[in-house]
Design a protein around this nucleic acid. Sequence first.
DNA 1: CTATGTGCAAAGTGTTTGCAAATTT
DNA 2: AAATTTGCAAACACTTTGCACATAG
Lengths: 128, 128
Amino acid sequence: MQRRNTNQRKLIYEVLKNTNIHPTADWIYEQVRKEISNISLGTVYRNLKVLKEEGKILEINDGKQSRFDARTDKHFHFKCTSCAGIYDIDKEGIIEINDAKLAQMGYFVQDLDVVFVGICYKCKTGEN
Amino acid sequence: MQRRNTNQRKLIYEVLKNTNIHPTADWIYEQVRKEISNISLGTVYRNLKVLKEEGKILEINDGKQSRFDARTDKHFHFKCTSCAGIYDIDKEGIIEINDAKLAQMGYFVQDLDVVFVGICYKCKTGEN
DNA sequence: CTATGTGCAAAGTGTTTGCAAATTT
DNA sequence: AAATTTGCAAACACTTTGCACATAG
């Protein structure tokens, strides 16, 4: 399939690249609406799906809603139980995995989803 | 709130304890229906919520559906991309986490969700 | 007896889709 | 010109909820 580079698609991707809050489709829709006021939510969903297929963005499953992330290099997430914020955690030096043991058990790991759950600095110190 | 031990609740919990497939609410509903034929899906959802509040079961978020797990001790999951099965992975000797570094970064970790994604033995060897 | 739980059906929420018109290439 | 994409609204899938009746304690 020969993809087109529509304004809608470009802008949706731009909006997502310029935030680090891992937004929902609805949040992206509201942002994009500021520029393309008659865009529909369906178009946002369709383009997020396309961008995901192209490997340009990731879908994060957070409860019943999907969130999206334009950062596609391998990294982890931290979810604050107080403010519900999702933060990026660089991979390096955080986790060590025993792949050999997993393979021995019959699980051939290709990917890894890690979500740390806890309290972020702001919430802990009452800065909010 | 003073909880009652209804047949519905007991059976839902039993069904979930006796499987390791991390079923959906609907699967549980179908099983329970074999014994209590007029139970409603709403009752299944309500009781799963109660059991979760009581800490007896866990809710696992898998795409748009919730799955449930009566195993509440700390463990990880492996999700096969081929058969979509979810398997339990014992915690021991699988992962090493640098909590100190995370705390240093301002993330105070209380819990950890890990999902390994890959191919299970059965799918890899074509046993299915 | 009374607070808690149930079955039912309707409503809610996030997401997807069919279609005719519009747009990209 | 042809194929892709759009806006719109309706449809969908999963989950929650209001209510009158039932039941555990």
